[in-house]
Simulated assay, not measured.
Amino acid sequence: MSLRALFLCLCTATAAQAQVPVLPDEARQVTERIDLLDSYDLPVGVISDGVLPVRGFEGRVDRRAWQLTGYAGSTLQIMDPIRAQLIRAGYEIVLDCAARTCGGFDFRFATEVIPAPDMYVTLEDFRFLSAIRTGEALSVLVSRTQSDAYVQAISVTPAGRSKPTPEDTVTIPETEPQAQPDLISTLTQTGHAVLSDLEFATGSNNLSAGNYASLAALAEAMQRAPEMRVAIVGHTDTVGRLDKNIALSKRRAEAVRDRLLSDHGIAPGRIDAEGMGYLSPLTTNLTPEGRETNRRVEVMLLEP
């Protein structure tokens, strides 16, 4: 899949602009979230004494992630052509660092990252880049696990700026379907599915503001099938006591239930909310990637 999707609303074409870099063939886009008016703190320096220098931007915020299954190359092999493309497109690179030079663990957890399973960050092997162009901002995060690589792009276009015309934008081919529309298929086939695009602050039960494709898809399915009943189930990693984790996971499930009721008009009696804490992991809790995967909210089908 082409990296052109990264720049659909960012890069205007010029006579000198080279072809947009291409990711390896195994890349597929796994998530996309667009907020027409939001804010984003763009990291503009490495973390020092626990402080991450950022510059705030407001406007349309696009958050996207790609997965490269079975990728055997390095993170630099992915980041290098992205950097070159941005420079050719007129962006100023304000931060370009690798794991330890960025600040390692502290940098990773001070930086916005799309939740797993759509994005993973290996603390010893990631690269981060920030770029600015005439009020626009873009960050790119590349990391890899033992078997796969992941690319995250967060872009901000100032509010009020008109959308690029077809002549100004990079032409892109039809892309693969997004992962989220498969949620209902997964739910009906297996009886449960992860709501992978939800965002909670660390240790908090507050569901971040915004429109979530997973909740919209679930609500639409429930509106089409009035007899459907579901349970929203929260899960945590193994950090902390079990009783506190069960309480936190249930509060998160209740927050998701409340959003479905208030924003999508689902009747209260059709949705339960429960918390499992760390009693039902998807994978090991002995690695950062495993713990991130296990921190999730699922929907379980009670009546079809």
Results as ranks from 00 to 15, higher is better:
D197R: 01
T284H: 02
Y212N: 08
L195S: 02
T236Y: 01
S214M: 00
N205W: 01
S155Q: 09
A213G: 05
A149L: 07
P173S: 13
T175S: 10
S196V: 04
R259V: 12
E174I: 12
A255P: 06
G191T: 05
L141G: 10
T238N: 15
S162T: 14
Q189L: 15
I184F: 08
V156H: 01
D243R: 13
A179S: 13
D168T: 11
N245G: 14
V156P: 02
R257H: 01
R144V: 13
K250T: 08
A209C: 00
R161P: 03
A193E: 00
S162H: 08
D272M: 12
N245F: 07
L187V: 09
T169L: 10
V233A: 13
L207F: 02
Q146I: 03
A253V: 05
R257W: 01
A225V: 02
H264E: 05
R144C: 12
R144L: 11
V170C: 14
A219Q: 06
T186Q: 11
R252W: 01
Q146R: 13
H235Y: 05
N206K: 06
K250W: 00
Q189R: 15
D263F: 07
T186S: 12
V170I: 15
V194Q: 09
V194D: 03
A273P: 07
S204L: 08
Q146Y: 04
G265P: 13
V256D: 01
L215Q: 03
T283E: 07
T157R: 15
T284W: 02
P281A: 02
P164A: 11
L279M: 15
P166H: 05
A221T: 01
V230W: 00
N245Q: 15
P281K: 01
E227S: 12
T145I: 07
